[in-house]
Nucleic acid binder design. Structure first.
Lengths: 168, 168
DNA sequence: TTGACATAGTTCCAAAATGGAACTTAATCT
DNA sequence: AGATTAAGTTCCATTTTGGAACTATGTCAA
């Protein structure tokens, strides 16, 4: 399977990765959350080639994760801002930060700290349950076949019936 | 900058992405969390080439995210299991699932549902604060320069002093 | 004891993606 | 008039993928 077909898998991880699973995309979004908005600034902060950056930005715009907004007219200049769809990647990013801080530290401690304004304390991301609000551990979760996967299974069955009919 | 230099950036997102930011790696981990452990099963479930799979698995083992365990002797066969370091990527994965379910649905509903055994309800991932336990929104967070970034800044300054000395 | 089967890779090669450096465009500033 | 700023594009060599076939090692059934 080619990478650009991955988004057709009946799997939300695959579909999410089709958008943000690229080498540089999460770094672009990290910068976006840190209020970086302009081409040159992304390029300097991240260090990917202008080439790739232009491509990634326009893809993210096409996918509705970023939007291009004019910030001056002459010469016309645009900046890239997170949409709501983009904003909602924040938990993914913070989960990556928490993991990186813990497991990929180089000995100097976390590059950035984060303060939660509601409680006024430093914090790191914790995965919690949308129903009860408690922290969730992998072993406490049961995955169940959902409607999306059932629908897919039915499509595959129907396909099987068609090709058996054709063969007979 | 080349991709394999990304892990040297003073940024936990970059360092985490250096491990899991590859096209297929999150899909391998998704399968691993769904109890897939063997080469053939990963390959069938994910659909990447055997080639790439072999490479990705051995990298993940080298990085301590998976470990190889013998499950029979003759012929010798190994399976791949999540280490603790790997297990702790669960929040990243669940955050991706939640986003994918919401923003990349194809109209059939979520492929998988997840039940939290503690409260016995279906749920999706919510980002919450390790200190107060409340849900966290992007606008409620202040990022601060941390020790890791300060250390990096000092190294760069020191480098500057050295090269100025050399130049004079 | 031979031939099929199972599992886990490896090899080879063409196609696609990436990285680096220079170039372009359009307007402003000095 | 020439330098500067911002946002890209273009060209090309290098690296990474994807696909398909091949290899290795041992089991099992006839």
């Amino acid at each position: 399977m080619k990478w650009n077909e991955v988004d057709r898998l009946p799997c939300s991880v695959a579909r999410a990765q089709a958008v943000v699973g690229d080498r540089w995309t999460m770094l672009i979004l990290r910068s976006a959350f840190l209020r970086v908005r302009r081409f040159e600034d992304f390029q300097k902060q991240i260090g990917l080639t202008r080439h790739r950056l232009a491509d990634r930005l326009s893809r993210l715009v096409a996918q509705g994760v970023l939007e291009k907004q004019a910030y001056q007219d002459r010469p016309p200049r645009y900046e890239y801002r997170l949409t709501e769809k983009g904003m909602e990647l924040y938990p993914v990013l913070m989960a990556l930060v928490a993991w990186g801080d813990k497991w990929a530290d180089e000995g100097d401690g976390p590059p950035l700290l984060f303060k939660h304004q509601r409680c006024n304390h430093e914090f790191h991301a914790v995965l919690s349950c949308s129903h009860c609000g408690e922290a969730v551990k992998p072993r406490e979760v049961t995955p169940l076949i959902g409607p999306g996967l059932r629908a897919q299974a039915q499509k595959i069955q129907a396909q099987g019936r068609r090709s058996r009919r054709k063969a007979s």
